[in-house]
């Protein structure tokens, strides 16, 4: 029964931590964006606005749940769920740290170590694209439909570039399992060998999760929120949570693939600091970076995004893959 209890506990803990992080990432984003724009951000609910996520959640719960006339009802209701579930499921393959010993039992710090973890992540983010597409289509709203089309096109285009970028990492580590990829970075992180791939991955990832400067599907100024325009109450909250869950998982995946996971570079060790701390610190810094660039970059135009994806990221990723292959063959 130990295996079962351990698995259920791990799932529960990871799920809880993820949802808590989602809630507080929204606060971090609002506070930090506020500072970048010389405002204070939310500071009324609790000390330093710390209870703001709670207040937001309560407000979402008590809002009226409106289903507009002439929407495609089953798809309209299903879309937020399709958006959120893959975003949460991605976390199942992310290794958070080395194994630890609890009550004399070795516990691995990941829910499952799948040997096709990278493909699993790509597949799930593909399913996640349906959420925005179906939501926008089912809303029976022009803005919604345009947002949906943009979201779909963008996700497919950048998923290709992302996959191509990942190939070079997979070639280097010889495995699709995130745990093994991290284990190969105890001394040198992958970013030292693959700086180009790292930049490409961050750009493609930001486009994939529809964040600024690639937030065309919900460009407020032109689409009045895009695919989620007709959604209210908890249905809107599900879309919102999906966005932030994607952001956290993108940060975690980037840390695993390029920044050594729970390892410090060059085999450094700091006594008395659990390894999971480094993982959390790196994820946190990446999230701060995502928020920072949101406050810095203007939104790209739609055709610019498509050009960037197909005419720049894809070819660079393919060339990077070729160079990696040639160098690996030469070194042996």
């Amino acid at each position: 029964m130990d295996f079962l209890i351990e698995s259920v506990l791990k799932v529960a803990v990871v799920f809880g931590v993820l949802l808590g992080s989602v809630a507080y990432t929204t606060l971090l984003e609002r506070k930090f964006l506020g500072r970048l724009q010389v405002r204070h951000g939310p500071n009324r609910a609790g000390p330093f606005g710390l209870l703001q996520p709670l207040a937001d959640g309560l407000k979402f719960f008590f809002k009226e749940d409106i289903v507009p006339a002439n929407v495609d009802k089953p798809v309209f209701i299903l879309a937020p769920v399709i958006a959120l579930v893959p975003a949460i499921c991605i976390v199942a393959v992310i290794p958070f740290g080395d194994s630890v010993t609890i009550f004399g039992r070795e516990v691995k710090m990941h829910i499952t170590d799948m040997n096709v973890a990278v493909l699993y992540i790509l597949g799930l983010s593909g399913i996640g694209a349906y959420g925005a597409m179906l939501g926008g289509w089912a809303s029976n709203n022009k803005y919604g439909l345009i947002g949906a089309m943009r979201s779909g096109a963008q996700t497919i285009s950048y998923e290709l570039a992302m996959g191509m970028t990942l190939v070079s990492i997979i070639m280097m580590s010889g495995s699709l399992s995130l745990t093994k990829i991290v284990a190969g970075q105890t001394f040198y992180w992958n970013i030292f060998f693959q700086p180009v791939a790292f930049v490409l991955f961050i750009i493609a990832g930001l486009a994939e999760i529809n964040r600024t400067p690639f937030d065309m599907p919900e460009a407020e100024a032109e689409l009045a929120c895009g695919f989620n325009i007709e959604y209210s109450s908890m249905k809107f909250a599900l879309f919102f949570m999906a966005e932030y869950a994607h952001m956290i998982s993108l940060a975690a995946i980037t840390v695993c693939l390029f920044l050594g996971g729970w390892n410090l570079p060059f085999g450094w060790e700091v006594p008395f600091v659990p390894k999971i701390f480094w993982f959390i610190a790196k994820v946190f810094l990446l999230i701060v970076f995502f928020i920072w660039e949101r406050g810095t970059f203007p939104r790209l135009r739609y055709d610019q995004i498509m050009n960037l994806g197909w005419k720049w990221l894809m070819p660079i990723a393919i060339v990077n893959m070729l160079v990696t292959g040639v160098v690996m063959t030469l070194i042996g």
Partner: peptide, 21 residues
């Protein structure tokens, strides 16, 4: 798992999305 992941990636993530389009 490999075939399953490919099934999701290709059929659900690419082919069906173009149908939805």
């Amino acid at each position: 798992h490999f075939i399953a992941a490919m099934q999701i990636l290709i059929y659900v993530g690419a082919v069906s999305i173009s149908m939805v389009f």
